[in-house]
Design a protein around this nucleic acid. Structure first.
Lengths: 329, 329
DNA sequence: TCTCGTTTTGCAATCGATTGCTAACCTGAT
DNA sequence: ATCAGGTTAGCAATCGATTGCAAAACGAGA
């Protein structure tokens, strides 16, 4: 059912039908009613492809996520999709992987599709290569970044103050007289480097500044969390606290500790970051730094919507994280 | 950069450029090289919207999921997106919610977008309303269902034999002399009703047929899992096994049991379904029925791809689940 | 009844590609 | 030099909408 079919049945031209469909003025009420009846009767829905061609907009939003399986990102994807679809947008979700190549490729693929807006989820997008690719392929459309920022005129970013967040976590452990703390980072995204800086600052100001060297790398996974915890235990049997940059490794870190007969939190405290559902599932329940993913989702989709509607908002929004104390501290 | 811009710079017509872009024959090698150089130089990428209009295909696949946050579905979404994007397809992922209205709406929204194929994830799509909406809006394009099936000529489905899977689970507990078993179902999707049938069958054949009445409803969530477990304990203090239809509730069921001072698995065994990562995180680790989500994802995207390429495959594929024994049985 | 000003409507171009058909161009053979 | 035959390239229509501009229809006042 095209606009022409309807036009023919109504005995008018396609332009008239188009105007009715789009609720434009200047149509005789009677004609409008007649066409509306036909539209209803034949269950007409406009072809968004054709419409997109002339309007140079597609009512589609691209969402780039390194890996949607990471529980944390998934919530953002879900929320954003809900929010945007309410305004008639459809979401193109692409998993880019973590390589720069993957990310740039995804951007190029989206460039073919007249998207109206773009959302980047995760700080891994905060890099030179992505910045260039965006400047080249999307100089005009609104772009919103969740947990990241790039200095381009059309980019807005929502960030969490993880530096201070992690610092507070370390201080929490120190307050309970645990000073020998190891820091476990899954990778060196800008966001994680911020966290590390917070850790270093707190530890240097504390009573066991030698811990500044206790930085370990363990990719996000249960296996790695277990492995790195055992490694830390063997290298520093006197460790009193583990600060993980995400929950998944933290959760199996707890398991590694209890398996080794170590009391949590009496002997070793554990804190994760993200405050995912894993925290409530493990035993003892994991204390975690909540980095405000829900708020971030809301803010990010809000500023994206705002930009899409031509509104203005600050190009950088900072949220503050908070510690959710459970049973591991 | 459009095909016309390139044509002008090359001093040829747009048709010629189009033929080069699409690698069609009948172009003088010299001309082809010249145009290819220009294409490269100006970083031309075809406008998929325009292309979609004339080709009546968009290289887009719709993916309908009730709620992507459910860990289980997320893996499917991830895998399918990966697989399809490799063949140049872009995925439109919509969260439909669980209401029929939401599902039908999502279908109508996709109908505006010339999608080339459709994937439905989850057995909730196996219902009258969806069947009708599909028949009306997508009578032609290939449709693949993960964990579901509808008797339409263009629909293929991949299913898991959950009936026998659950039956085996119950038998596993019975073998260890636990006969008084409660069954917890999050909702009454076709898939869950299958599971329930398996439970009833096993229990009626067993030594405590009165358990056929021990069927409880608890939506997927940690809170509900905890709540329903306490309820079961109070109504049937002699319970010896809990069979959950998914892992999330199961995991907090374990917690409720240990909180109540009950030994798992010595006094009460627990089994979940889905075999998500939660199983490895809780303590003790959860025994679960693996319903082959990865295989299902692979099969579903495989049959969708096959249909897209005009190939044929059986319209119904059955997979067999298997039990992953851990520490709760 | 005629004119003028407003409403309504339609024509035709446009968005960026694809493609059947035709026209122009070569090449070599006569 | 001419012509048949195959190559190569361009014209123009098409996909399904939108929209500026002009034309038609209408209504009211003279």
């Amino acid at each position: 059912m095209t606009i022409y079919d309807i036009a023919e049945k109504a005995g008018v031209s396609a332009s008239t039908v188009s105007r009715v469909v789009n609720n434009k003025p200047g149509i005789k009420p009677e004609t409008r009613r007649k066409i509306e009846a036909l539209l209803e009767q034949y269950d007409y829905t406009p072809n968004e492809t054709a419409r997109g061609l002339v309007k140079r907009s597609s009512k589609m939003i691209g969402i780039l996520i390194a890996d949607i399986r990471y529980a944390h990102y998934m919530d953002i994807a879900f929320y954003v999709e809900q929010e945007l679809s309410r305004s008639g947008y459809t979401c193109l979700i692409l998993n880019t992987g973590i390589t720069e190549e993957g990310k740039v490729n995804a951007i190029r693929r989206l460039a073919q599709r007249q998207i109206d807006g773009l959302m980047l989820v995760g700080s891994t997008f905060q890099c030179e290569a992505v910045e260039q690719a965006l400047a080249q392929n999307f100089p005009d459309i609104p772009i919103a970044m969740a947990n990241g920022y790039l200095p381009l005129p059309n980019v807005k970013g929502v960030l969490v103050d993880e530096y201070n967040g992690v610092m507070e976590c370390i201080k929490l452990m120190q307050k309970k007289n645990h000073h020998k703390i190891a820091f476990i980072i899954p990778n060196t995204t800008p966001s994680n480097l911020q966290k590390q800086a917070g850790f270093l600052q707190a530890v240097r100001e504390g009573k066991a500044p030698e811990c500044a060297d206790w930085v370990y790398l363990a990719p996000t996974s249960l296996e790695e969390g277990y492995r790195v915890t055992r490694q830390i235990l063997s290298e520093h049997p006197d460790v009193e606290g583990l600060m993980f940059c995400e929950d998944e490794a933290a959760v199996s870190g707890i398991r590694a500790l209890t398996d080794a007969g170590i009391q949590v939190p009496e002997q070793v405290q554990v804190i994760g970051i993200d405050n995912t559902r894993y925290c409530e599932i493990c035993n003892p329940k994991l204390t975690a730094l909540d980095n405000m993913m829900l708020e971030m989702s809301m803010e990010t989709s809000r500023i994206l919507m705002e930009s899409l509607n031509g509104g203005t908002s600050p190009s950088k929004i900072m949220l503050f994280s908070r510690i959710i104390e459970r049973e591991t501290t």
